[in-house]
């Protein structure tokens, strides 16, 4: 099951990933980070397909994706 990881302190809460995720995995955390932003967080991680769209759209490289075993390659990147 793919795992999406958001670096809480690097995220600026721009919400681009929240809108872009086809599975609506990501939401906005109610806890501010050290910079005072409300960062994104995987609120429904179980729905993640490992498609990497969130990471592709993140301007701050705050999202890292890991998968176990085989993975379906939605697009070349």
């Amino acid at each position: 099951m793919p795992r999406v990881q958001v670096d809480r302190d690097r995220c600026k809460g721009c919400e681009l990933c929240v809108r872009a995720c086809p599975q609506k995995v990501l939401g906005i955390s109610p806890r501010i980070n050290f910079k005072g932003y409300f960062p994104a967080e995987p609120s429904r991680p179980e729905l993640c397909l490992g498609c990497r769209i969130c990471a592709v759209t993140c301007p701050d490289v705050a999202i890292e994706i890991a998968v176990h075993g085989c993975r379906y390659n939605y697009f070349d990147y």
Binding site: R3, G50, R52, A55, V56, V61, I63, E64, I65, A66, V67, H68, G69, R71
Partner: peptide, 9 residues
């Protein structure tokens, strides 16, 4: 198996 990272900096 250990997770493989497929997107990183």
């Amino acid at each position: 198996s250990a997770p493989t990272t497929i997107f990183r900096r």
